[in-house]
């Protein structure tokens, strides 16, 4: 039963990884931009939540009411003010977001020092439900997983069932013709970034309740998200969820063998998928 328990933990953690990944693959899908600063933004939102919680005396879940809209605004501004100017060639977006990553990390270091932080959610952190005699699962991870799945489902709907999603897909196909249809591509890209960061803000707050974070935690999160995307297969949100879950399980199992191994185990699974099935486990199927 112990193994079932561990795998269950991995599944729940994987939901969060899928959330990091969803934000990352959303913007890649719309504008072919890979945001190297993605993980650092996640961490920045966790710090923001930390700050807001202290200032307003609220819990992490309530803080989302402030953090999510703020993240969307930041995303919109970041895209219009900076990233839109880098699009077109391959190198500029990559190098600019690398610069951004370093800037964010060091700004966080200046303001919050190297000390680790954590967001405290109160009693719910230790609450658990007993599924089977030997299988009890924390309420908090369960809620987080459910929210993650719901957000991914929501993204799926936005992408395939709304006018905004249609504009995203059209712009991704052919930005020039999209303009001929009256779509302001600069605005569309900014909306995609806003949506991505809103999603990521939720993920940031969630992960910060579960683990300690410091200003240099971001790249790790970027890598988890990226691995989930590649394992799951590019361009499919449900595939990404599956990829995240698989990564979570690999890490949970790896952690059982050796305390130093959880991440390594995740990387190994990622590399194995890359070697054996480079298109990912669940690549995008045609419309």
């Amino acid at each position: 039963m112990e193994w079932v328990n561990i795998i269950f933990q991995g599944v729940l953690l994987g939901g969060l990884y899928a959330l990091f990944a969803a934000g990352l693959s959303l913007i890649f899908g719309v504008m072919r931009l890979v945001n190297i600063a993605h993980g650092d933004l996640i961490v920045a939102f966790a710090y923001m939540a930390y700050f807001v919680m202290a200032a307003l005396h609220i819990g992490p879940f309530t803080s989302l009411a402030v953090i999510v809209p703020a993240a969307a605004l930041i995303g919109y501004g970041l895209q219009r003010g900076l990233l839109n100017w880098t699009l077109g060639e391959e190198l500029p977006p990559l190098l600019v977001t690398i610069g951004l990553s370093v800037i964010i990390q060091n700004l966080l270091l200046v303001f919050f020092t190297f000390d680790t932080h954590r967001l405290h959610a109160g009693d719910i952190e230790i609450a658990s439900v007993q599924f089977l005699p030997d299988l009890s699962v924390g309420v908090l991870p369960l809620i987080q997983f459910a929210v993650a799945v719901a957000i991914i489902a929501g993204l799926q709907i936005v992408f395939y069932r709304t006018a905004l999603g249609r504009a995203f897909r059209a712009t991704s196909d052919d930005p020039v013709v999209a303009q001929l249809m009256g779509l302001e591509t600069r605005h569309i890209f900014a909306m995609a970034m806003a949506l991505s960061l809103a999603v990521v803000a939720v993920a940031g707050v969630f992960i910060a309740i579960r683990t300690d974070f410091n200003p240099f935690y971001g790249p790790q999160l970027l890598i988890f998200g990226f691995e989930a995307i590649i394992i799951g297969g590019l361009g499919s949100l449900w595939g990404t969820l599956a990829g995240g879950i698989l990564l979570g399980i690999a890490q949970a199992l790896g952690g059982q063998f050796n305390v130093g191994w959880p991440f390594l185990a995740g990387h190994v699974v990622f590399l194995a998928v890359l070697i054996v099935r480079p298109q990912g486990l669940f690549p995008k199927v045609a419309l």
Partner: peptide, 19 residues
């Protein structure tokens, strides 16, 4: 891995080595 995904791939590899 293509383009920017190659970039993150190199990062993962570096992580593996450190660990």
């Amino acid at each position: 891995l293509r383009g920017a995904y190659f970039t993150i791939g190199t990062w993962v590899l570096a992580e593996v080595f450190v660990q």
